[in-house]
């Protein structure tokens, strides 16, 4: 187990190093830090002097090591636009994005389990067929289109719910303001969360259904039925427990994927999170912020994937750790 853990951690570090190298290569090639610093009106001589002072004439490798050293200490440069450390800018936007992901996760977990179980128990019922049909339509509608549709219906036509921003947020601590503490906050986060959930929900319904149908064929479920245990107990305690393992594995990976979809949702709803900030940074060619976003998001992906792999290795007794570590 320990060997597997160490190997998995080494892989995570290697991937982070690769990401940081890409990030540094972007920083090295995109935009000119000197121009951002002093503008156009400085003579060539002073420029060269400044370049030497800033270490911009050092070799690629030396500069990369310096970049890496700073990055490990949490310094990813200063945003050209916000004039403050890029990491701080991102950390200020992070809670908004995480709350959106959290809201979507609540919807996904709350709906996919009952729907998935139901369609597996009664695969031929009309309602189950409707759910399965809806799920394939759901997969086929891009997130941004769902979002636009909801804005059109609920904000433009009926004006029930607001279409942009976070509304009244309640300060918790540090950079964290929450949407979940006021009615106005809830009304603002509802549509974006549904939009974000809309792409993952059908996937999870189908996954749970498929796993559940497989488990329901197994001997121990038949035995439990023969013993006369109440069907509800069989479905939700005996069978569901064994379908959750693959669901958790896929789910963990999808949390990372959801970060990508937040960019789309946040753009449509003008949600002041990291994704929206990233697109603005791209339009302003705010290189340090772009690179910092790349590294923070890469970090989120690597951490969630490593944790999911470790949990999977721990929970599933059939995984041969020695072989996986090889």
């Amino acid at each position: 187990m320990l060997a597997y853990l160490v190997k998995r951690l080494f892989q995570a570090i290697a991937v982070m190093l690769a990401i940081s190298l890409i990030g540094f290569a972007i920083q090295d090639n995109l935009g000119d830090p000197l121009r951002e610093l002093v503008g156009q009106s400085v003579s060539e001589e002073t420029r060269q002097q400044l370049r030497d002072e800033l270490g911009l004439n050092d070799s690629f490798f030396t500069q990369y090591l310096r970049f890496l050293g700073n990055a490990v200490q949490g310094d990813l440069g200063t945003s050209y636009f916000f004039k403050e450390p890029a990491v701080d800018v991102i950390l200020k936007k992070l809670p908004a994005t995480l709350e959106l992901v959290f809201g979507a996760t609540l919807i996904i977990v709350g709906l996919s389990v009952p729907l998935g179980v139901y369609t597996a128990i009664k695969p031929n019922h009309v309602l189950a067929k409707v759910i399965m049909g809806a799920s394939i339509v759901g997969i086929s509608i891009p997130v941004f289109l769902t979002a636009i549709l909801m804005i059109y219906v609920f904000s433009v036509e009926y004006q029930w719910l607001p279409s942009y921003g976070r509304g009244d947020v309640v300060h918790v601590f540090g950079y964290w303001d929450t949407n979940f503490a006021s009615l106005d906050g809830w009304s603002h986060i509802l549509l974006p969360s549904i939009a974000l959930a809309s792409i993952m929900l059908p996937l999870f319904v189908r996954l749970i259904r498929a796993e559940m149908m497989e488990v329901l064929q197994s001997e121990y479920v038949k035995y439990a039925k023969a013993k006369g245990i109440h069907p509800f107990r069989i479905y939700f305690v005996h069978a569901l427990k064994n379908t959750l393992l693959p669901v958790i594995t896929v789910g963990g990976v999808q949390i990372g994927t959801m970060v990508a979809y937040t960019i789309l949702t946040e753009t449509v709803f003008q949600w002041p999170g990291m994704g929206f900030m990233f697109l603005e940074a791209v339009n302003r060619v705010d290189t340090p912020l772009i690179v910092a976003y790349l590294i923070v998001v890469g970090f989120i992906f690597v951490v969630t994937n490593t944790i999911v792999d470790l949990i999977y290795g721990l929970v599933n007794p059939t995984v041969n750790l020695a072989r996986m570590g090889a």
Partner: peptide
Amino acid sequence: MRLADIQLSFSTLMVAIIFLAVTQAM
């Protein structure tokens, strides 16, 4: 296959957004 695992763990959309954003800025 290890490379494939790593590539799969990053969402395509994320990779594409970052790649295209940087290309566009460059």
